[in-house]
């Protein structure tokens, strides 16, 4: 499938390459970076990009190249964890809601709408600010604002699947509700969740960068991209301080978005026609 996708869809190929590169960097970063990302060299403050410091240095003389490389670990980690946890919560919540139906369904869906009625970034900021800025709190906030998407998709899938004949058959064979849910319904609905997760990955990275830009992510001196952009934006004359971590965010989220789009187009024939 992937091979066919790459052939048909250039953007998907680009996205895959970008993400693969970042993934590799994230894995090998601690072994290959030229400097300790936290090492301060005050004599080399604000050095512009050179052979010594490929991406220049920041206000404390830290090597930005090393910081951007190391920062990819945090961004990718945060994006993945958010999606996985949000999907887990959403699948269970939406699954129960769709499978149970009736009044329970109504109540549970109103509950998820309650969360969705707030603008994502605002709600995430409120939660972060209330819990205090830290990496874990930022993750919690992101999961809290993210899961309803998955719950809604899961619910609609479950409602669709549960009227299928094989579910009826299983029921008439005397299978328990529990068994039906896990053996019949879940495997047949999970596909869309995976697609949604892929599409969302880029957005999750963007949201996380946004939060840490606002000072609500991991506290300094963590080499986090959003935080680095925020530090760098105080110094217009030293363009490299904000540009390189910004470029990191750009390529990473763009790559993830291309993959997501590719996968969705492939699986959704209606959209594919448009192309």
């Amino acid at each position: 499938m992937i091979r066919r996708l790459i052939k048909q869809n250039r953007l998907f190929a680009i996205g895959l390459t970008l993400c693969a590169i970042w993934l590799i960097i994230a894995v090998i970063a601690p072994y290959v970076v030229p400097y300790d990302p936290l090492y301060q060299d005050l004599t080399a403050r604000f050095s512009s990009p050179s052979a010594e410091h490929w991406f220049g240095t920041d206000a404390l003389g830290r090597d930005i190249f090393s910081r951007v490389m190391t920062g990819s670990r945090i961004s990718i980690g945060a994006g993945l964890l958010t999606i996985v946890f949000a999907a887990a919560v959403g699948v269970i919540y939406g699954g129960i809601s769709g499978y149970a139906g009736g009044l329970i369904d109504e109540l549970m869906m109103r509950g998820s709408e309650l969360v969705q009625s707030f603008p994502t970034i605002i709600l995430a900021m409120v939660i972060c600010a209330a819990l205090g800025p830290s990496l874990y709190n930022a993750l919690i906030a992101m999961v809290v604002v993210w899961w309803p998407n998955y719950a809604r998709v899961m619910r609609s899938m479950v409602i669709q699947v549960k009227s299928n004949e094989y579910v009826e058959a299983s029921k008439s064979l005397g299978a328990s509700r529990f068994r039906i849910f896990f053996k019949e319904i879940l495997p047949n609905s999970i596909g869309s969740i995976v697609v949604l997760g892929t599409v969302d990955f880029g957005n999750a990275i963007l949201l996380f960068a946004g939060l840490s830009y606002l000072g609500l992510g991991s506290p300094p001196p963590t080499p986090e991209w959003g935080l680095m952009v925020s530090e760098g934006s105080d110094y217009f004359q030293h363009w490299w301080m904000a540009s390189f971590p910004g470029l990191g965010i750009l390529t990473m989220s763009m790559g993830a978005n291309f993959i997501g789009d590719g996968v969705r187009d492939f699986l959704d024939p209606k959209l594919r026609k448009e192309l």
Partner: peptide
């Protein structure tokens, strides 16, 4: 992305 750059 543009929005983000703007925010930056």
């Amino acid at each position: 992305l543009l929005l983000f750059a703007f925010a930056a």
